[in-house]
Design a protein around this nucleic acid. Structure first.
Lengths: 348, 348
DNA sequence: TTGTACGCGTTATCAT
DNA sequence: ATGATAACGCGTACAA
């Protein structure tokens, strides 16, 4: 019942020819006679011969595997990026090895070391919270010094010379804040994380810039910094008790959704009394009640671009020392949590 | 600047010893003299020698890679399963290669063929919609006949002899329906998919059984079958116009959330007028407004168990022909979309 | 104590 | 037209 994988050697033995003849015949080499080729090809087909990937990898020093290291997979944004990577990579004949750092520096290091020992041709990754907190990128330096191409996406660092794909987070923050201002909102709160997240930093910056540009004051007590995990509703509730707001910008989806609930419970009607915009246009924004206007990150596009950049580097033998940073423009998906002064946006 | 990976051969050449001496020394073999060992180990450490995974794979015929083939990764349930698999697998020194079938039969076949040629030691997978629709499992048969272990989870089939992990979907459907009945609901609608999803079939069965056991009538016009993707709210709205309901069971999260919105728009108050229970306890259920009571699938646990089963098979050289099916018991996470007659359930 | 030789499966180069 | 050989990197049985 067990039909073990057949190798060139088996075929050679069975057909009483040499291994190299079999190899050539299966590659349809001109060197081999019509007869032998047909015989060998038929036999190979019959026994469903397929070359062993590992052997080929060893020989070619190319695995056709891409290592993807992300902080978390139970997270809509990363998930869309992985999907984008998969799509492009598969199409190019690459497999995707996914490793999770769980936001931990140590796990990120361990995973990368595992993969760097020949398992993959290159990395696509987004830095873990721990790594950004530590501000330690030696594991990345080691990998790039070995000549393994790396593409960073979303959570990146200037410390490493490599290709990068980011969205213009500052622009996203700016656009969203501007939209609130254009609706006539003047008291706009910002829900954000701590500053070691590069993305939050940039989004905050956009928020400030938009306020400034519109001659509005930046008030520190209108900014709430929440821990990335384990949000406590009470903290949000207290925050909104302290200040009077008519607009809320959240640097992610979760904070935004939670803010909407808290505000609704306090009796505010969204968007009549308060407009809310979140980041990371995911399932929650789409299915919230009211559905939440949000800044789309285009994770799938990001993944595709990252994969494209990586595979190009992997397949070009030239040791270029030139790195690009692709900046994706964010988009606002207008939904029910904001007013619609210009009647725009379908939402879905 | 480029510090290419060093091999045994390099070390041997540099230290003027044989490759096997180096190999043994690095394994701390008793055969090698203290002196040489120290010299070699120091050198290896200095140049950060790490054995090449590919070479080891070729030699051992073991890749330490697990192939995971799932229909979709932008999907909370699958994502939690992947996380569970990763957790267990990493701990055991395995990498996880994730491939997406995109619910397509063809893609599933192609991906499996790619991986089956030596890239992985075994598969963990959940059948694509296309595969279940086609009812064609030859690609799985081929793989198992080659002696590659397979573990199916969630969307499984009786056609293949292999280890399986499922939740007791019928029990989940039963429990949920029973809960609605216990709340005093008598007109319970069922939102489901088409029958070729094994999970839906089982959940439906639980629904029927619970009604029967409670002496309630099973009415066909209380059952709405929706396409898996692209739900149209209008269809749901029309459905609820045709019938009078006080309870809704949805075989997934999305249908449930959509039903809540539609019902709320029609003026019903949840859970005062109508209770709603969904399946797949994910982000949407948790953050819905009101938050949705739902049947938890315990994807992480499922993933861990699947990984455990697979790795056990992979690492046991005995060719057992005995396969287990692990059945995970579902749990109801009580939230705000149902009444709380017994004051149970924390939610969150 | 150290080294030689072989094998894992494949391909490419160089004989025959 | 076919075959022998070496090489990819490693490990190990066996020889010295």
């Amino acid at each position: 019942m067990l039909k073990k994988k057949i190798t060139l050697k088996h075929i050679a033995r069975e057909l009483d020819v040499s291994i190299s003849t079999v190899s050539k015949a299966l590659k349809n080499s001109e060197e081999i006679s019509r007869d032998t080729k047909e015989k060998i090809q038929a036999f190979a087909k019959l026994y469903n011969y397929k070359p062993n990937n590992i052997a080929i990898s060893l020989k070619n020093k190319r695995t056709k595997n891409i290592g993807v290291v992300i902080p978390d997979i139970v997270h809509h944004f990363f998930t869309t990026v992985v999907k984008g990577i998969e799509k492009y990579a598969n199409q190019k004949g690459y497999n995707v090895i996914v490793c999770l750092s769980d936001e931990s520096f140590d796990k990120e290091v361990i995973n990368m070391e595992m993969l760097a020992n020949g398992s993959i041709d290159g990395f696509i990754m987004s830095l873990s919270a721990g790594t950004q907190e530590n501000d330690d990128y030696n594991h990345l330096k080691e990998v790039t010094e070995q000549g393994i191409p790396v593409v960073l996406f979303d959570r990146v660092t200037d410390e490493i010379d490599c290709d990068k794909v980011v969205i213009d987070d500052q622009q996203g923050g700016y656009m969203a804040t501007k939209k609130l201002i254009d609706e006539g909102r003047k008291q706009i709160a910002l829900l954000t994380t701590h500053d070691y997240f590069s993305v939050s930093r940039d989004r905050n910056e956009g928020y400030r810039k938009a306020l400034l540009d519109s001659g509005l004051e930046i008030k520190d007590d209108y900014i709430l910094r929440l821990p990335y995990m384990d949000i406590e509703e009470q903290v949000i509730s207290d925050f909104f008790d302290r200040i009077e707001v008519d607009g809320v910008l959240s640097v992610n989806e979760i904070f935004g959704i939670n803010a909407m609930r808290v505000l609704q419970r306090k009796g505010y009607v969204i968007p009549d009394d308060i407009s809310v915009i979140g980041f990371t246009d995911g399932l929650l924004s789409k299915h919230a009640n009211p559905s939440m206007t949000s800044v789309a990150q285009h994770g799938d596009k990001m993944g595709e671009i990252a994969a494209k950049m990586l595979i190009e580097k992997v397949e070009s033998d030239v040791e270029e020392e030139t790195y690009k940073t692709e900046i994706i423009q964010p988009t606002i998906v207008a939904r029910e949590s904001t007013l619609n002064p210009n009647g725009a946006g379908s939402g879905n």
